[in-house]
């Protein structure tokens, strides 16, 4: 199983869950598994063409998949996948 970290803005789609577990072999199948379990998540992560949105980062362990093989980056059991969106808050 792969553990996936859900960021705060997306937790309303996972019923408040911070971490979810999926069976997957790459990021494409992580996103598919998330969408199957929590409909609406895929649209928040990927554009119409299926590519990762440019203000969303996904890390496999410590590594940004944009610098690996993108959504085709392979993962294995025990890997930790983090979804990290750009956040602007600081308050002026």
């Amino acid at each position: 199983m792969i553990q996936v970290r859900i960021p705060t803005p997306l937790r309303k789609l996972t019923g408040g869950k911070t971490e979810v577990e999926v069976e997957a072999t790459d990021i494409v199948s992580v996103v598919a598994a998330l969408e199957a379990a929590y409909p609406g998540l895929k649209e928040r992560l990927c554009d119409e063409g299926g590519e990762l949105r440019k203000f969303i980062n996904i890390y496999v362990n410590e590594e940004d998949i944009r610098f690996q093989k993108g959504i085709h980056t392979a993962i294995k059991a025990g890997d930790y996948v983090s979804i990290v969106p750009a956040v602007a808050g600081g308050s002026y």
């Binding site: 440019k54 203000f55 980062n57 969106p85 750009a86 602007a88 808050g89």
Partner: peptide, 15 residues
């Protein structure tokens, strides 16, 4: 390099 583009308006809720 970290975040290539800003989210479109309305995609992210404000504090």
């Amino acid at each position: 390099c970290l975040y290539p583009e800003a989210p479109p308006e309305g995609m992210v809720p404000s504090c």
